[in-house]
Design a protein around this nucleic acid. Structure first.
Length: 512
RNA sequence: GGUCCGUUCGUCUAACGGUUAGGACUCAAGAUUUUCAUUCUUGCAAUAGGGGUUCGAUUCCCCUACGGACUACCA
């Protein structure tokens, strides 16, 4: 009690971090910030088989993009490997902490809470498939352990011989068969499990000298003085084991509090959100773009044009709400308002429309000058160079109809270059009869306007049309057709004033 | 199969045991607009089913159904 809050995000570098993982990291970050505590990053790479190059860097970069970088475990974008005042528990990569874990596994064996097991994985696989064929499930537990190859059934000397002569053995936890394990979850409340339904999990493997997740996670959380474990729901079934490990190791008073987050679900159908759903449904599942070793590219929110604030805000609301009607929150506001009590118990289906809406909200809060700066490279890539003032004015005219910066061009191209193609339907509807001749008269009138401003045009144009008894709809729509190429866009006067007198007259004089 | 977790509009969600079950996204309609949008207004739309407990259940308990996670020498 009274311990300073320390939370950790402990991903496994087996691939890019997906948005569910980012949400878990976010909730950890928010919780730490609110409590004035520390957010630690630890890399759980105890499975050398599944290690993916670049995944670790991806995780760090993703968190940085979201603005939720850990203050401990990472320095200069890299995992810390040497202890320092700021990073006292280094290294933060479990593969580099290899030597720490074995002693605890051995301690458990000595106490009689764990044992050596010699069954090969092939033997166990055979037993599993055999049991499955009979409609049963094979589990290594209190019922089966006494008929298997382990230090409980083999003579002491033979056991010693096998341990020293080969590395084909593991240490398994000896799960008690008669205990009701009472646990608490900060989100779900009290949970009870009968230990007789649990199995004897592998804690440590001689083959690679590494612990499995269960041992590594308990040992590191204790050593790193973690006070609260906030992780995905997939860990709930192993919580009883973790409780037992804390107890057997004599660390009950240092056991952290636990909170298990519900999963992010597919927008359609069933099951949890997976990498493939994004490709299939056309939205990103990852914060940043990711290329795998086959060269396949998965979309990223950053590359799709999302603002990190919008992405984070959207993610925070997938499974949490403040209890008020406010939906737009900065990271600071989120940290202030966050509470595990208000985290939703059930899984949330991801909604791409809402994500888009969030980005629109954030885009609307940006000053036009910033949007102009973000849009300039896109413009330059089309070979168009304009000053910032002009670009800002153009964006001002269309900014309330976009959700992303990359939507500016398709909605504003006619403000930068004359239209080449003209909407045939609009043309057929208005460009007939006297209209071409009428437009020529309008053009002449416009040429006589000295101050070619929006206000001046807005006054002169309708006046001219009315006083000459011309058809308002046909004239206005035809002007728009000549200026834009189709029937969309801001007011005709706005467009004319922006592109200027010369360009306006040129477009109105063009044959279509 | 077993263990655990969950279930309010299509989606995200709100509601000390007492509300006409609220908001947001989407969708539809209307107003504004010479266009397309924006904006504003309105509308559509939910407590999985069955038992209890209670004067009164979305809310508490039980059962069923459905969904999910886990059930590896993966995390």
């Amino acid at each position: 009690m009274g311990r300073i809050t320390r939370v950790r995000f402990a991903p496994s570098p087996t691939g890019p971090l997906h948005m569910g993982g980012v949400r878990t990291a976010l909730y950890n970050y928010l919780y730490a910030k609110q409590k004035g505590g520390t957010f630690v990053l630890r890399i759980e790479d105890t499975d050398s088989q599944r290690f993916v190059p670049g995944a670790e860097e991806y995780i760090i970069e993703s968190l940085a993009w979201c603005g939720i970088s850990p203050e401990e475990g990472v320095e200069d974008g890299k995992i810390v490997t040497q202890p320092s005042p700021k990073h006292p528990h280094a290294p933060y990569r479990q593969s580099q902490r290899k030597d720490i874990y074995k002693q605890y596994a051995l301690q458990l064996v000595q106490q009689g809470d764990a044992y050596y097991a010699f069954d090969t994985s092939q033997e166990l696989d055979i037993m599993r498939s055999k049991a499955e064929a009979e409609g049963k499930a094979f589990t290594y537990n209190h019922q089966s352990r006494m008929s298997l190859n382990n230090s409980l059934t083999i003579e002491k000397e033979e056991t010693q011989k096998r341990i020293s002569s080969s590395s084909n053995w593991v240490i398994r936890y000896k799960m008690p068969h008669d205990k009701i394990i009472k646990m608490a979850d900060l989100i779900r409340g009290d949970i009870e499990v009968d230990s007789s339904t649990l199995d004897d999990k592998v804690l440590w493997k001689a083959a690679d000298g590494l612990p499995t997740y269960h041992l590594a996670n308990v040992v590191d959380d204790k050593l790193m003085e973690i006070t609260d474990v906030i992780r995905g729901e997939e860990w709930l079934p192993s919580l009883p084991l973790h409780y037992m490990l804390y107890e057997s190791l004599g660390w009950n008073n240092l056991r952290p509090s636990f909170a298990h987050l519900s999963l992010l679900l597919k927008p359609d159908g069933k099951g949890k959100l997976s990498k493939r759903d994004g490709d299939r449904l056309g939205f990103p599942v990852f914060p940043l773009e990711w290329k795998n070793d086959k060269g396949e590219v998965s979309k990223g929110y950053r590359e799709e044009g999302y603002y990190p604030e919008a992405f984070v805000n959207m993610l925070a609301f997938m499974g949490w709400n403040p209890g008020t009607e406010q939906e737009v929150f900065s990271l600071e506001e989120l940290a202030k308002a966050f509470s595990l009590e208000r985290v939703i118990h059930s899984g949330a289906k991801f909604n791409a429309e809402k994500a888009k809406w969030y980005n629109q909200e954030y885009l609307r809060m940006k000053p036009t000058s910033q949007l102009a700066g973000e849009f300039t490279p896109i413009l330059n890539s089309k070979g168009i160079y304009k000053d910032q003032e002009y670009i800002s004015k153009a964006i001002e005219l269309i900014r309330d109809r976009i959700s992303f910066v990359n939507e500016i061009w398709p909605l504003s191209n006619y403000l930068f270059e004359a239209p080449e193609v003209f909407d045939q339907k609009v043309k057929a509807k208005f460009w007939k009869g006297d209209i071409p001749a009428t437009i020529a008269r309008v053009k002449e009138m416009l040429a006589n306007i000295k101050e070619f401003t929006k206000e001046e045009i807005e006054e002169q144009l309708p006046l001219f049309i009315k006083s000459n008894d011309l058809p308002m709809g046909a004239v206005m729509n035809s002007l728009r057709l000549l200026l834009v190429g189709e029937s969309k866009g801001p007011g005709v006067a706005d467009i004319m004033a922006l592109i200027g007198k010369e360009e306006t007259l040129a477009r109105l004089g063009k044959e279509i």
